[in-house]
Design a protein around this nucleic acid. Structure first.
Lengths: 209, 209
DNA sequence: CTTGACTGTGAACGCGCATTCACGATATAG
DNA sequence: CTATATCGTGAATGCGCGTTCACAGTCAAG
């Protein structure tokens, strides 16, 4: 046990340093893009020497990979959780929007990196990392779709479109507002009330005659 | 006149070649990203020698710049045009969605490049090109906003959200569907009827009790 | 055929960057 | 204190890529 504890202490220290490097890299990657960040920059920002980075990660690509996997794991766990809460489907959607907003605001850098580097589909030279991240994303999207489905079956929602289309629509609207906020937080304030987002779907724009 | 014609003929030939290079570069950039494409690749694809490229463009960056400006000009001219048509606001929106769909489908590569390289805000090392492109984009967005405003004043639309928010929402939903189609045209068919997109906004999801 | 302007070429140059490695610094053990 | 393992370093290495330039091919005029 004592032995385990000393080992753990060293391990913990290692982990702290590792995470410090990842945080530095994430900030740089998200601001300038993977290709435009050099190992020297990451070294400088994380206050290590270039050589030291290679004691933790065997390549620049592995740093990127670690960041993506770590964040994708956290994001999708949190979002799936929020989708299993709520009294009814409307409530669930509100919780989902709130959760996603908080999550994205607290991790703006990771979100920006994810979107910037994911946009190119097949060709991410970066391993089959795509697969894992994509799979998680699809899982959330699928779960969100079933929320709309359930709402329709219960008669809570009108069938104005395919449930999967509604899931896509909700997320895309939400992302737009989040990105506008990230771009210019002062100019584009983000509405605190999730209903401001949801009402775009919930309420009909066209006035019935 | 004769002199002008010979000049024009040579000029035309130059232009053809220039455009051929731009087309090759666009395809590569959109697939792999600006940083991941070498001048040698562009040369090979356009069937010129590397040196020849520099007879047309003084740098790799200028090629990128030309592509972006050329396309942004065409896109925004076309979109603004579509927004000035239509009998009423609903009709205008239908025409806008149709036009944008056709435009984006015929120029999928350009759209993808635009989105991928625009996502990083201030830091595009690529000149103040951002400004010009961004300005045009904002102009379309502004015009779309006024369409929603007019519809509300006429009593054609319900005031379910800020007009500018609705403009953002419509575009973001539309982009999502377009990108899904670009990613996998077979799996995600794009609805031919613009109302499939518009109904997500037009019709209320929530069933009133 | 000769001259000269023009077009197109691709090997060569220089630079920046990811990766390595031989070496000091530091900590642990005996 | 000495010996040994571990940690951290940053100059050196090799490579890929943007850019250049001296040159070969082409064509029109004389």
């Amino acid at each position: 046990m004592a032995q385990e504890k000393t080992l753990t202490r060293r391990e913990k220290e290692k982990q702290r340093q590792r995470q410090y490097i990842l945080d530095a890299a994430l900030e740089l990657f998200s601001q300038k893009g993977y290709s435009n960040v050099s190992m020297n920059e990451i070294a400088e920002k994380s206050e290590f020497a270039v050589g030291t980075l290679y004691k933790f990660f065997c390549s620049k690509e592995e740093i990127y990979k670690s960041i993506m996997l770590q964040n994708s794991e956290r994001f999708h766990r949190t979002l799936l959780e929020s989708l299993s809460e709520g009294n009814d489907e409307v409530d669930t959607l509100r919780k989902y929007v709130r959760t996603k907003r908080e999550l994205f605001f607290e991790n703006a850098a990771a979100v920006q990196l994810y979107h910037a580097e994911t946009i190119r589909k097949g060709f991410d030279a970066k391993v089959g990392l795509d697969d894992e991240v994509r799979e998680r994303h699809d899982q959330v999207q699928q779960e969100l779709t079933t929320v709309f489905e359930r709402g329709m079956k219960k008669g809570l929602f009108n069938k104005i479109a395919e449930p999967s289309h509604l899931a896509i629509a909700l997320d895309s609207i939400h992302h737009s507002f989040i990105f506008l906020w990230i771009e210019d937080p002062d100019k584009n304030e983000y509405p605190d009330d999730p209903d401001v987002i949801l009402n775009i779907l919930f309420k009909g724009l066209l006035r019935e005659p």
